[in-house]
Design a protein around this nucleic acid. Structure first.
Length: 383
DNA sequence: TCATCCCGCCAGACG
DNA sequence: CGTCTGGCGGGATGA
C-alpha cells in the first residue's frame, strides 16, 4: 500500500498546514501584551511567558528586548522582567529623544548631565536637526563607532540597541516614513558613502524586520508604501498609535486590513516544515523541544510570585493614561509637549479628520487626567 | 522572482 | 560546568 503514500502533504496536510503568519513575532508580541497587560501584573518570568505563549524561549528574548527598549518592560534580574506597561512608554521615548538629540548635536557641554538611568552609550547617530523635512533621511549620518570594547562588540549589534536607534530615527528627525532598507543603511554606518556599505546590511534588515513586526503590533509604526516609489515602508505613528493599542483587547484587534491570524493565544502549532514521512508515508510533526510538553499547566500564579501583592493598584484608571507608579511629572510634561508638538509640527498629518478627532480626544482625556493628578499632587497646572 | 522573516545552532555572558 | 542570552544567517514562505 505504498502507492501514493510518499507525498508528505497528502490530504492530511490540509488540516495542519504550516502557516508562517501564525508564528510571526508580531502576533506573538500581541499575545504577549494581552497576556500581561493587566494592572495586577508586576513581574514576568521568561520561562513562564514562553510556556504560556507556547513558544521557545528564544522568541521571548526577541520580544522582550524590543519591549524593553520602548519602556514597557524593565529587566529586573536574570530571567525576570518587571512590567511597566504602556504607561512606561512616554518616558522611555522622551529619553530616547533626548539621547538622540544630544548625540547628534555633537556639542559636548562637558560637566553634568542628568542622564536618566539606562545603560551605556553607543554609537552616535547624528541627525541634522531641523533641516528640511525631505532630505533629512539622506543626510543623516552616523559617525564613527571606532573605539569598541572588544567584549561589548556584541552588544553593539543587539536587537535592543537597534530598536532604540530605529526609534530615534523617527523621534529625532522629521522623517516619518522610511523603508527598512534605508533604515538599515542609516543605522549601520555611513549613509554618506553608499559604496562602502558596511558589512552586509542585508543581515541587519532581517533584524529590522523583526523589530518592525513587534513595533507594528503595538501600533508604533504602520506598514505602508512610499508614495512615489511604491516601495514598502514604515510610517511612525508614535504614542497615539501605541496608546490606542492599550485598552482594547489587543488580541484580536486586527485593525483595518492587517493580517488576520489565528485566535489561539498560545500560538502553539506545528513547527516549520519538520515533517518526516515514516516508512509507510504516515507523516508526523516533530516538535523539537520539550516546550510543548510543559505548557498549559499554568494558573495565574505568574504574577506575584515575589510575594508582595500590590497595595491598591488601581487608583488611576483613566483610559489610555493609566500611569505607572511614580514619575508622573516627567511623563506628564512630556506628553503635553509631545501633543503640542504634534499639533503644530505636522499640520499636514492632521488634516486627516480621523487623526484630528483622535488627537482632540486624547487632549481632552489628558487634561482630565492631568487635572486629577495636579489636584492631588499639587503640581503645576496646564496653562 | 524578490520581499519577508522564522527557526534554532551555537558562542559569549553569567553564576 | 550548566544555564541564560541572544547574534546570526540558512532557507522556507508569501506575494
Amino acid at each position: 500500500m505504498a502507492l501514493f503514500s510518499t507525498s508528505a502533504s497528502s490530504e492530511e496536510g490540509s488540516r495542519f498546514t504550516y502557516c508562517r503568519k501564525q508564528k510571526s513575532l508580531g502576533l506573538l508580541c500581541t499575545n504577549f501584551l494581552s497576556l500581561y497587560n493587566r494592572e495586577d501584573v508586576e513581574t514576568i518570568g521568561l520561562d513562564d511567558a514562553a510556556a504560556q505563549l507556547g513558544v521557545e524561549r528564544r522568541r521571548i528574548y526577541d520580544i522582550v528586548n524590543v519591549l524593553e527598549s520602548v519602556g514597557v518592560l524593565a529587566r529586573k534580574a536574570k530571567n525576570r522582567y518587571s512590567w511597566l506597561g504602556f504607561g512606561g512608554i512616554p518616558l522611555a521615548l522622551q529619553e530616547l529623544k533626548d539621547e538622540g538629540l544630544k548625540e547628534n548635536s555633537n556639542v559636548q557641554d562637558g560637566s553634568n548631565h542628568s542622564k536618566v538611568s539606562d545603560d551605556e552609550d553607543d554609537e552616535r547617530l547624528s541627525i541634522p536637526y531641523g533641516s528640511s523635512q525631505e532630505d533629512t533621511a539622506n543626510t543623516i549620518l552616523l559617525t564613527q563607532h571606532s573605539t569598541l570594547s572588544k567584549t561589548d562588540n556584541r552588544k553593539e549589534k543587539s536587537l535592543g540597541l537597534l530598536t532604540r536607534n530605529f526609534v530615534k530615527l523617527f523621534l529625532c528627525s522629521t522623517v516619518d516614513l522610511i523603508s527598512l532598507d534605508e533604515a538599515a543603511k542609516i543605522l549601520l554606518g555611513d549613509a554618506r558613502d553608499p559604496s562602502l556599505m558596511r558589512n552586509n546590511s542585508a543581515a541587519k534588515v532581517r533584524r529590522l524586520y523583526d523589530i518592525a513586526n513587534v513595533l507594528s503590533s503595538m501600533n508604533f509604526i504602520e506598514k505602508t508604501h512610499h508614495p512615489e516609489t511604491r516601495k514598502p515602508a514604515f510610517r511612525w505613528l508614535g504614542i497615539q498609535g501605541a496608546m490606542e493599542t492599550e485598552g482594547v483587547d489587543p488580541l484580536f484587534v486586527q485593525h483595518s486590513k492587517k493580517r488576520l491570524f489565528g485566535t489561539d493565544i498560545s500560538n502553539i502549532s506545528y513547527k516549520k516544515a519538520k515533517i518526516v514521512s515514516t516508512d509507510e508515508g504516515s507523516e508526523q510533526i516533530i516538535k523539537s523541544d520539550k516546550q510543548l510538553t510543559q505548557m498549559k499547566s499554568k494558573s495565574l500564579e505568574t504574577v506575584a510570585d515575589t510575594g508582595e501583592l500590590k497595595p491598591d493598584s488601581n487608583v488611576y484608571q483613566f483610559g489610555p493614561f493609566a500611569p505607572v507608579d511614580d514619575q508622573f511629572p516627567s511623563s506628564c510634561e512630556y506628553r503635553i509637549r509631545e501633543l503640542e508638538r504634534l499639533a503644530s509640527d505636522r499640520p499636514i498629518q492632521y488634516q486627516n479628520h480621523a487623526l484630528t478627532d483622535l488627537f482632540s480626544h486624547y487632549m481632552e482625556a489628558w487634561n482630565l487626567w492631568f487635572g486629577e493628578v495636579s489636584g492631588k499632587k499639587h503640581v503645576h497646572t496646564v496653562s
